[in-house]
Design a binder for these strands. Structure first.
Lengths: 144, 144
DNA sequence: TCGTCTCTTGACGTTTACGTCAACGTCAAG
DNA sequence: CTTGACGTTGACGTAAACGTCAAGAGACGA
């Protein structure tokens, strides 16, 4: 077993509202993500207590969403994130290598998306240049 | 009026199926995009004829979608794309400058998305490294 | 002329990612 | 002890982006 430092059992915690307000989502969204297996807050009675882990995951979730990842896609990455330092489950070498392979696919996918994004950015720049050029044309027409 | 070169009136054209198959979408999608004002194929009788312009726009649409742009967002960019070299409509300097300003916002938005994407890519790399490290640990455990 | 193909326009169904109630528990302040 | 403020679980509604029929028009080879 790798030397794991047991958390002091009580780090910072958030209520639904606190976490929702801090990261700019609704409580409904948090409960929805929990139902989808993306978050797993503790319970005090019936009430949810979100830990730093949930906080981190939510940041990652929102980040992924902003450039078009679906919740299932995001969940897959989060689960891999768990899998690794929790000892890769009963993860022998085979598990780990297939995990690495899958991560390679994911990386390729993300890089493809970034290429698309960059190309679109380039297009936008082209339009800007077109606008500027047109402006110059107007100036010249005026000065004649 | 800027010197416009009238297209030879007949460049390459596609039927729905041809265009759909070439870019990997369904005909339904093409008609949907048309209804949303993203494409505007010619008509021969009741039948659609997609031109190079439609082809180009569809490429841009699909590109934008891949990293999370909504159809309204994409449409806005496409319309700007038109607006510029079609003389910016009745676009005086004011129109052009506000257009450039809007394009600046869009560029900032896209760059923010790319930052999120890059951060996510970095996270994925971190997980990969974790996997590799774990693999090395297993090797060491074996050799003892 | 008869299928067969491909096209057309509705119109309703589906999935994702939540929004929006309703109805109820609970806990501290007044 | 009641009143909010905050929490909970359903359950249904909704917007975006198409999917999936249904029913019919037009062309085209046998």
């Amino acid at each position: 077993m790798s030397a794991q430092v047991k958390e002091p059992l009580s780090g910072p915690v958030w209520t639904v509202r606190e976490l929702a307000d801090e990261l700019g989502v609704t409580t409904r969204t948090l409960r929805f993500y929990e139902a989808e297996g993306l978050l797993a807050p503790l319970r005090v009675g019936t009430s949810r207590r979100y830990t730093a882990r949930d906080h981190t995951r939510l940041v990652l979730i929102l980040r992924g969403k902003r450039f078009g990842m679906s919740l299932p896609e995001i969940r897959e990455i989060l689960e891999m994130y768990d899998g690794v330092d929790s000892g890769a489950a009963t993860g022998e070498r085979a598990q780990l290598t297939s995990l690495i392979e899958r991560l390679g696919q994911i990386r390729a996918d993300l890089q493809a998306r970034r290429d698309d994004l960059d190309r679109t950015l380039a297009e936008v720049e082209t339009v800007v240049l077109g606008c500027r050029r047109r402006l110059v044309e107007l100036e010249e027409e005026d000065q004649r």
